[in-house]
Every structure is written in C-alpha cells, then in structure tokens.
C-alpha cells in the first residue's frame, strides 16, 4: 500500500508543464502552427496535425467550475486529510481547459484547512505554487481575497 501523497509521473509530454510550475508559472501547451491549446499535453495537434508546440503563459486566474468533498475510504495519506476539497478551475484564456486542484487558504496550506461548506461555484481564484516534494510543484488555488490580504 502506498503511504505518501501521489505525485504526477512524468513523460516527455507532461514534463514541461511541471517544469514550468517548478518556476511558478502556469502554462498550457499550444500548437505552433494553428495556436490551438490542448490539455493534457500530447504530441499532435488534433486540429491541424502539427507536431510542433509552444507553452503559453497563463494569467493564473480562474473561477471554480465545480467542487466535491471526498471522504474515506481512500489511500492512507488522503484518508488522513479527509474530508478535503477538490475543485475544478476554469481559466479565462481557454474555457474548455479546466484544471483539477484544491482550494487552500495560503500557498503552502493543507487541502483540508478550509471549510468546504463555504466553497461556491463561480468563486474567483488565483493559482499558487506549493512544492509537494522537493522539485515537484502541484499548482493549487487560493481565493482572490485571501491572496490580497
């Protein structure tokens, strides 16, 4: 049985995303030829067939599209945190690209520290870049007002 929290496995397509989050940047893969954005990252543009891509910097702002609150049974490390929140964040640049994440009260906050009963669809959030383990940054999200205070 796995003890710690899960981490994203890297391959040649996904590694750039986490390379950018490690330097506090949220970027999305876009086609070099037709500019279409795509997630998850992959070799070929489904619109034009191009194999060339660039990584476009996003503003890091978003709105909560939906949320849920997992309770056990879960993997042990997650059971220890449950109930915690999960959110799906819509970004203004590309509405069809939605990031899964957690709402936290501070950049390095735990995923269970906010009362999930207060979460609302449509809330404005801003990306934060906590380090999950050394060198791996999983982007999470903070309410705009929490970030400003």
């Amino acid at each position: 049985m796995i003890e710690g929290l899960l981490l994203p496995g890297m391959d040649e397509d996904s590694e750039p995303f986490f390379g950018f989050t490690a330097v506090q940047e949220l970027r999305v893969q876009c086609c070099s030829d037709c500019s279409a954005a795509r997630m998850p990252p992959r070799p070929m543009c489904p619109h034009c067939g191009s194999l060339e891509s660039i990584w476009e910097l996003l503003s890091g702002s978003g709105t909560i599209w939906s949320y849920c609150v997992p309770h056990g049974p879960l993997l042990p490390a997650y059971s220890a945190l449950a109930p915690y929140n999960l959110i799906i964040v819509e970004i203004p640049e590309y509405p069809a690209i939605r990031f899964c994440g957690n709402l936290v009260a501070s950049p390095n906050g735990e995923i269970n520290e906010l009362d999930p009963a207060g979460i609302r669809i449509g809330e404005s959030v801003q990306v934060v870049f906590p380090e999950a383990v050394e060198g791996v940054v999983l982007p999470r999200w903070q309410r705009l007002e929490d970030g400003e205070s």
């Binding site: 899960l6 994203p8 496995g9 997630m39 997992p70 879960l74 999960l86 899964c100 957690n102 999983l138």
Partner: peptide, 26 residues
C-alpha cells in the same frame, strides 16, 4: 503507483481525486 502515469490520472489523482466516485461527485 506513487508516481501516477496516464492522461486520465496524472492531472487529477495527486490532488486527491482518487476514485471514480470523486469524478462523478464533481
């Protein structure tokens, strides 16, 4: 495994969206 592979899982499981029920709850 600890390092989650695959497009369905890599972008969701590390955050705690572990089970099918969590996806449907969302």
């Amino acid at each position: 495994s600890q390092r989650v592979q695959g497009d369905q899982q890599r972008w969701t499981r590390p955050y705690g969206m572990l089970r099918p029920v969590d996806e449907i709850a969302m």
